[in-house]
């Protein structure tokens, strides 16, 4: 059971999300409609995870995202799952670039994913466990953006596939299951990737951020 603070300004979606979370055994300790209330709720309830919308009042720009970044600076290891109405790599970049630390899970997924309830709950759990989960659509766009850039061209299509799944926060075992290959070959692929991208493979969960940092570096 996860204790969740939920921030979403649209009443309809707030109710929907609350229902989904409550029905699946989690507990929404506070459901708020703007960024300030979110900060206060987190300070009061100390939840296991924060789920927040990007756009919220009063400016309807990226208040939720900024509140999430601020909360992560204030509360160490606070997992945050950001929901976005549309694919914006700018948001993902902002979120992941916010702090270099990888303590506490971080997630950025599209709101549409919530409809795939079991996958959404899976994402929620993984973020709460401290993993980083980026929406496949965002990863796809980030990778597509990179096809013209230098270092990723060195990767084989299979390696790129593995990198994509890695960026979504899957571990070697799940990647192996998804691609129907042995875990040993995934390990081989990932060490190839790290080698080709000049990354240190010893850094565990940090690898996702490293990969994304690398993608961003190539993009800029």
């Amino acid at each position: 059971m996860l204790r969740v603070v939920l921030a979403e300004d649209a009443v309809l979606l707030r109710a929907g999300l609350t229902e989904i979370l409550d029905r699946s055994g989690h507990r929404v300790v506070a459901a708020v409609g703007d960024a300030r209330a979110l900060s206060e709720a987190v300070d009061e309830h100390r939840p296991d995870i924060v789920v927040t919308d990007v756009r919220m009042p009063p400016g309807f720009r990226d208040e939720g995202l900024r509140a999430a970044l601020e909360l992560r600076a204030r509360h160490e290891r606070l997992p945050v799952l950001v929901l976005s109405q549309y694919v914006a790599t700018a948001y993902a970049t902002q979120l992941l670039g916010g702090d270099g630390r990888d303590e506490g899970g971080l997630g950025y997924v599209l709101k549409d994913r919530v409809g795939e309830v079991s996958e959404f709950l899976d994402t929620l759990r993984r973020v709460a466990d401290g993993q980083t989960v980026i929406d496949p659509e965002v990863v796809r766009v980030l990778l597509a953006q990179q096809t013209a850039a230098r270092p990723l061209n060195r990767l084989t299509p299979r390696e790129r596939e593995v990198l994509g799944l890695m960026a979504e926060g899957y571990n070697n075992q799940s990647i192996a299951a998804r691609l129907s290959v042995t875990e040993a070959s995934v390990v081989k692929h990932s060490s190839n990737i790290f080698m080709k991208l000049d990354l240190d493979p010893a850094e565990g969960n940090r690898r996702v951020l490293a990969v994304l940092a690398h993608l961003r570096g190539g993009a800029g």
């Binding site: 999300l17 229902e19 989904i20 795939e116």
Partner: peptide
């Protein structure tokens, strides 16, 4: 844009959520 975002888009997202729950 704001109206579509606040209105139809939200309704559709809420619909997918409800359908997702029903499916489950």
């Amino acid at each position: 844009e704001r109206d579509l975002h606040d209105g139809a888009q939200q309704q559709l997202v809420a619909l997918t959520m409800t359908l997702g729950l029903a499916e489950l």
